[in-house]
């Protein structure tokens, strides 16, 4: 109970921080980057549910993001659907697809699962590219409308920031509750030893499929939000590279930690902006940073940063640090 209370306080503090953020950045371009941090946070948390809690790897999560984006985009831009309705359809369709796919695909383990999800991602990517009549093909789909609540049109960065972070906060809250629920404990049991979990009466395979589908659903919602924020989408944003970037966000942030995913998403989204000063060298710095961060913070940022502080702070602080 007290653990839950702590989580709630953390969440409320973070919500407050989100609410006041535009006061500092509004008008600047960082506001725009923070919108994407919100989307990537949702994606990273979605993947973390699968990767960190259930221990199932996916190298094709960009596909669910892409499906969400494209279903929303095509329904609104080509067929004139209401964006909210399109978002709902995208979420349900992607959820069902992941649910059906989940049964055969989650029977696989380890690198076989990695390969299968990777293959799924590539199939979706190629389909988005090849169905030119439907998706516009590699040159992309434009003219996607912004979301709207009665007369409030989400057409600038500050409005989009609040819109997307509302969804991101809901995602955080849901995931925190899920992680601390009976399901979360069962998931962790699967993570540690699936056989043991089965013996203890956990319906492991069905639970895994449910989490897979939930994760796909959150990714699809993030995809819809992305489509309606950008108003233009192209398949290049949903390729293998982005799937890998998502896994990187989760691992760099800290497996199994909700706020870790948030940190990972923030870091990997903001990093390219800071690396712009390196120009063409940024790819080298980026690669090096991935290696160094993983080497020195194997538990991710969320465990690594306090660890670093611990190492930097003088010895006498350590005793008192426990309650802080």
């Amino acid at each position: 109970m007290s653990h839950m209370k702590k989580e709630m306080i953390k969440f409320l503090l973070f919500t407050a921080a989100v609410i006041i953020t535009p006061l500092f950045f509004s008008g600047g371009y960082l506001m725009n980057v923070l919108v994407f941090v919100g989307i990537n946070t949702m994606l990273a948390i979605a993947l973390n549910l699968l990767l960190g809690f259930a221990g199932q790897i996916s190298l094709g999560h960009a596909a669910f993001f892409g499906l969400g984006s494209y279903i929303s985009g095509v329904l609104t831009a080509t067929h004139g659907f209401d964006p909210w309705l399109a978002m709902l359809i995208a979420a349900i369709a992607t959820f069902l697809m992941a649910f059906l796919l989940g049964f055969p695909i989650l029977k696989l383990k380890g690198h076989y699962l990695a390969m299968a999800t990777l293959g799924f991602g590539i199939i979706v990517y190629i389909s988005l590219n090849e169905t030119v009549g439907l998706t516009g093909g590699p040159s992309g789909l434009s003219g996607i409308p912004n979301l709207q609540i009665s007369s409030l049109l989400f057409d600038n960065d500050v409005k989009n920031f609040y819109l997307i972070w509302t969804f991101a906060l809901v995602t955080i809250l849901l995931s925190t509750n899920l992680a601390n629920s009976r399901i979360g404990r069962a998931l962790r049991a699967i993570h540690d030893s699936e056989i043991a979990a089965r013996v203890m009466g956990v319906n492991a395979s069905f639970l895994k499929v449910q989490i897979f589908a939930l994760s796909a659903l959150i990714s699809a919602v993030a995809g819809s939000l992305y489509a309606h924020t950008m108003t233009f989408i192209s398949p290049a944003s949903f390729g293998f590279n982005f799937s890998v970037e998502l896994v990187t966000m989760v691992v760099i942030g800290g497996l199994g930690s909700i706020y870790g995913s948030l940190l990972g998403a923030a870091l990997l989204t903001l990093l390219p902006e800071f690396l712009r000063t390196f120009q063409d060298y940024d790819i080298i710095v980026y690669g090096l940073l991935l290696i160094v961060m993983t080497m020195f913070m194997p538990g991710g940022l969320v465990r690594g940063i306090p660890g670093l502080f611990g190492a930097l702070l003088p010895k006498r602080m350590e005793g008192g640090g426990e309650n802080a």
Partner: peptide
Amino acid sequence: RPLRNATPLSLVIITIGGSIFIRGIAML
């Protein structure tokens, strides 16, 4: 080698980092 006890996933990320790094050097 310095990471003998890391999780397989961290090692995957390291090899991805290494791949990006080697590619970057080659590009340069």
